[in-house]
Amino acid sequence: MSERDLQDVLRQLKSSTSYPDATKLLSTAKLTLLKLKALTPQPNTPAQILLLAREVFETGALTSIRAKDTESFTRYVHQLTPFYELPAERLPGTKSERSKVTGLYLLLLLTQGNYAGFHTELEGLEIRLGNNGELGDDKYLLYPIQLERWLMEGSYDLVWQSTTEEKVPCEEYGIFSEILTITIRNEIASCSETAYPSLPISSTKNLLFLESEGAVIQFAQSRGWLIRDGRIYFPNQNLKSGAEAGNEKELSQLAIENTLGYARELETIV
């Protein structure tokens, strides 16, 4: 009985547009799965139900990411993991949104600044796909991987291009563009603070990917930069060198502590 129920729910899910409706449908679907004992794959679960279960979770993941509910998205990803680990003869990989979901998850980790998690996930992918195909062939997976590389290198213009132009592989990925833009803008700002002695406002506009000079001024004020004669000065720069001088005292204290430590250790040895 419940297998058909599940299919019904899935059909409704596909057509529903509002998030609250979808969540309600999803929780019924999950309840049904629970009754079928297929919330996590059991050794004796039939392939048909496994397929349905995976579809439910994938829909859930995509729905929650569309509604920007990252927590629930992460939960769905974790629930999907055991399904993805099943061998192909039990659950064929066709018709799966696997790479899309994984790619989104990678992107989420990236925007959260969780690089350790990102690479952990990536390592798994590398081994999984290493034998039968190049990782870069998949546009859903390639996108976050490239973004990460550019972010680490500092090629922020490339990151910017990939978020603004029509280079986003699908609509779900677009959700992250906004976050990414903010991230890179802050990164650039902190780089500029140390790299430039001063900047003219007009070119800062391009540098920070802002629309107008007004926005530049606003942004500069939010970061506490000084604006004089059409140029931006970075007060933090001087602060930093001052801080280093203040360290002098700390430094000598450290040296004393170390020396005392050595003396004590020497004593124990001799």
Binding site: E153, G154, S155, Y156, D157, E187, I188, S190, C191, S192, E193, T194, A195, Y196
Partner: peptide, 8 residues
């Protein structure tokens, strides 16, 4: 950008 990041 890359140089700026390297400086930072």
């Amino acid at each position: 950008y890359i140089v700026a990041k390297a400086i930072r």
